[in-house]
Amino acid sequence: MENTMTEAKAAKKPNPALMKPLKPSPELAAVVGSAPLPRTEVVSKVWEYIKANNLQNPANKREILADSKLQAVFGGKDKVSMFEMNKHFANHLS
């Protein structure tokens, strides 16, 4: 049984597409900085920003309440779900 768990871990390699540094748009750069970053780092930095600015809905932690910087990234929306958030990043990374 232990052998199969080791094989499963070995089979799960990081996706190289997720590790490729991408240039953030000016709107996203206002939150994460202008240096090219892998997608995983972009998500981490946005979460740091959300937590530092207390932008999680206290009644529903899965909901992000956008300030003016995040509204620019989220297409003008006041709030998005944490799952919807990653779709918006795709429009701001190249």
Score class of each variant (00 low, 15 high):
Met1Ile: 11
Met1His: 12
Glu2Tyr: 15
Glu2Phe: 14
Asn3Ala: 14
Asn3Gly: 10
Asn3Asp: 12
Asn3Ser: 12
Asn3Ile: 13
Thr4Ala: 15
Thr4Arg: 15
Thr4Tyr: 15
Met5Asp: 14
Thr6Asp: 10
Thr6Phe: 09
Ala8Glu: 07
Ala8Tyr: 05
Lys9His: 15
Ala10Trp: 07
Ala11Cys: 05
Ala11Gln: 03
Lys12Met: 14
Lys12Glu: 13
Lys12Thr: 10
Pro14Cys: 02
Asn15Phe: 08
Ala17His: 08
Lys20Glu: 14
Lys20Val: 09
Pro21Ala: 02
Pro21Glu: 02
Leu22His: 06
Leu22Thr: 08
Pro24Gly: 13
Ser25Arg: 05
Pro26Asp: 12
Glu27Gln: 08
Leu28Asp: 02
Leu28Trp: 01
Leu28Tyr: 03
Ala30Phe: 01
Val31Cys: 07
Val32Tyr: 02
Gly33Arg: 02
Gly33Phe: 05
Gly33Ala: 06
Ser34Ile: 14
Ser34Glu: 15
Ser34Ala: 15
Ser34Leu: 14
Ala35Glu: 10
Ala35Leu: 11
Ala35Arg: 12
Pro38Val: 03
Arg39Phe: 11
Arg39Glu: 10
Thr40Trp: 07
Val42Phe: 01
Val42Ala: 05
Ser44Glu: 09
Lys45Ile: 03
Val46Thr: 06
Val46Phe: 03
Trp47Gly: 07
Trp47His: 12
Glu48Met: 04
Ile50Gln: 03
Lys51Tyr: 04
Lys51Pro: 04
Ala52Leu: 04
Ala52Val: 00
Ala52Ser: 05
Asn53Arg: 03
Gln56Ser: 10
Gln56Leu: 12
Gln56Pro: 04
Asn57Pro: 01
Asn57Val: 01
Pro58Ser: 08
Ala59Leu: 08
Ala59Glu: 11
Lys61Gln: 11
Arg62Glu: 09
Glu63Ser: 11
Glu63Trp: 06
Glu63Asn: 08
Glu63Arg: 07
Leu65His: 00
Leu65Ala: 03
Leu65Cys: 01
Ala66His: 04
Asp67His: 08
Ser68Arg: 10
Lys69Glu: 06
Lys69Pro: 03
Lys69Val: 00
Leu70Gln: 04
Leu70Met: 10
Leu70Gly: 00
Val73Ser: 07
Phe74Asn: 02
Phe74Ser: 01
Gly76Gln: 11
Gly76Glu: 13
Lys77Glu: 11
Lys79Thr: 11
Val80Trp: 04
Val80Thr: 05
Ser81Asn: 06
Met82Pro: 02
Met82Arg: 10
Met82Thr: 10
Met82Gln: 12
Phe83Arg: 14
Glu84Trp: 09
Met85Cys: 11
Met85Gln: 08
Asn86Ser: 15
Asn86Trp: 14
Asn86Ala: 15
Lys87Ser: 13
Lys87Phe: 13
His88Val: 07
His88Arg: 06
His88Gln: 09
Phe89Cys: 02
Phe89Ala: 06
Phe89Ile: 08
Phe89Lys: 06
Ala90Phe: 08
His92Cys: 06
